[in-house]
Design a protein around this nucleic acid. Structure first.
Lengths: 161, 161
DNA sequence: TCAAGTTATGTTATTGTATAACACTTTTTT
DNA sequence: AAAAAAGTGTTATACAATAACATAACTTGA
């Protein structure tokens, strides 16, 4: 089987990832007539700047540091709520943390590989997972609304070390 | 495809489930030379008495009610930690809640179907999911330590209504 | 253009989830 | 019985999320 280490585990020009994500977010919000306000864009940027999922309070502290004034939890949570609603970010339940979605234009479910060593979380292909989940739910007579798949382990880079 | 509604969604003698779980837990702890203390057994019983996953603070309140004195969070969390360690219970990340494991003797991963209507969570068969996850991780060169699969939707009983 | 309505953010307080650090008790081992 | 280990109690605190209400900023339509 061919092994493709996730992009996040390879060295790459991450600034271009961030830029692309912000551009895509702007496009999507324009299409949907919703507002990517400065705050929302700032939160999205902070999340994208980290390959590791960021907690809400980490984001709060970064915002506070950037603006030199106190930012209260609801401010951050509302921005997160907006970004989640428009699938610009995902929530990692096992970490209580948030990470940028690399393909917000394509409707898709988010399955994650999370490295317990370096902390990096990457979306993984739905190819095998999506049909397996569909079959599992169908055989139990269950109607799917939402799904959360989080695989914890060690990424290729950390395995080498 | 044959539809098998999860046991939890059917009426059944749940007391015998609880009894079996406690017996199995005793057996496992004896084998491993660890102690299923009264507190741990009490927490395990409380969790088993509920088909819905129980939060730590709900367990705290139940313990407090049963013993008529205050129980502090660490007491409960330590019991939960022990039960998790020995796979006598599972944690449902999307709910911050805990549920009994019906087959603690068999090493297995826990995949869940969670009904957003009645709140019942049931383990679902690994038949399709386990190989899909293995293939997905392998194709990314990822070593699996742990996995969390939570499918949220509506169970057969709630769909009928 | 400006008043009304809507959307977004600020602010204070509170609830829910989880752990750290240290004291004390019980069980196990020697 | 003393020492060591395991378990529980207690206090305080960190981290995660939301409720309720006030203010500001944008949008819309006469």
């Amino acid at each position: 089987m061919p092994q493709q280490p996730p992009l996040a585990c390879q060295s790459h020009d991450h600034q271009s990832c961030i830029d692309a994500a912000i551009l895509a977010a702007g496009r999507i919000c324009r299409e949907r007539s919703v507002r990517l306000t400065p705050l929302r864009q700032q939160v999205l940027t902070l999340i994208w700047q980290s390959h590791k999922p960021l907690g809400a309070y980490a984001i709060m502290d970064m915002l506070a540091a950037a603006t030199t004034r106190r930012i209260a939890p609801p401010t951050v949570y509302r921005a997160l709520e907006f970004l989640l609603e428009h699938k610009l970010i995902h929530r990692i339940n096992s970490l209580n943390a948030y990470i940028g979605c690399p393909e917000p234009e394509n409707q898709h479910h988010s399955y994650f590989l999370i490295c317990s060593d370096c902390g990096i979380a990457t979306e993984c292909p739905a190819k095998y997972l999506a049909p397996a989940i569909a079959k599992t739910a169908a055989s139990a007579g269950f109607d799917i609304d939402d799904q959360s798949v989080e695989i914890i382990g060690r990424c290729p880079s950390c395995r080498k070390r």
